[in-house]
Design a protein around this nucleic acid. Structure first.
Lengths: 104, 104
DNA sequence: ACAATAGATAAGCATGGACTTATGTGATTC
DNA sequence: GAATCACATAAGTCCATGCTTATCTATTGT
């Protein structure tokens, strides 16, 4: 798991779509494929890449493999982003505040 | 400028290094090359990619071109990241707090 | 034990991306 | 105005990557 792995993993639209789907709830590879014109091996390969970037983690459940968001990858991005905080525009601060409100 | 462009741009170690250098202060392409085993055309091409991702912007100054961090790209990443706030571990919140302290 | 199902892996192919050398363009200096 | 300098662009090469089809492994159900 490196910043290279993470950004490369997210540099693919399909993978970001998969990640987004997982963010709305853990599910197995077959469930992920539903409504996504993507072959079984392709999905498997994408998940492997996301796993290698610590953006996703798996949990075996019988013959199913349940996938879920791995906070580690997200944390790493946040860490990277934080280094450039000096350049964050006011708009981001506003967004942050908004999100903080929404949480409550 | 799309999320694809941004993540793809950052998926390259050399480009992240260039970006990091620029984050420590605006400079022209030649200055950027100093201490970085990279050819002039390669640098120019990397800068073009970073520009295309709104991570960097240029300002012509005579025959020099001064490059600087463009907050737009960073804002876009922050926005993307914010969508998955639910999964941010406590550690990030701590980091955020720390950075907020350091600002003062 | 056997068939079916969920998923991973292998191998091949086609495209994309990072580099190279060579050349072009626009500003500066003598 | 000719040489020089800062940078961009063109064209070619090589490796990475995302897909495909085919096959393998592991678990479940009958």
């Amino acid at each position: 798991m490196s910043e290279d792995d993470i950004f490369k993993a997210l540099g693919d639209t399909t993978r970001r779509a998969i990640f987004e789907k997982l963010a709305s709830g853990a599910m197995n590879a077959s469930a992920l494929r539903e409504g996504m014109a993507i072959s079984q091996p392709a999905m498997s390969q994408h998940l492997a890449v996301l796993r290698g970037a610590s953006l996703v983690r798996e949990r075996r459940q019988g013959r199913y493999v349940n996938y879920e968001v791995d906070p580690d990858g997200l944390a790493r991005i946040a860490g990277w982003l934080a280094r450039y905080r000096t350049y964050w525009p006011a708009r981001i601060e506003a967004l942050e505040a908004l999100l903080k409100d929404m949480d409550q």
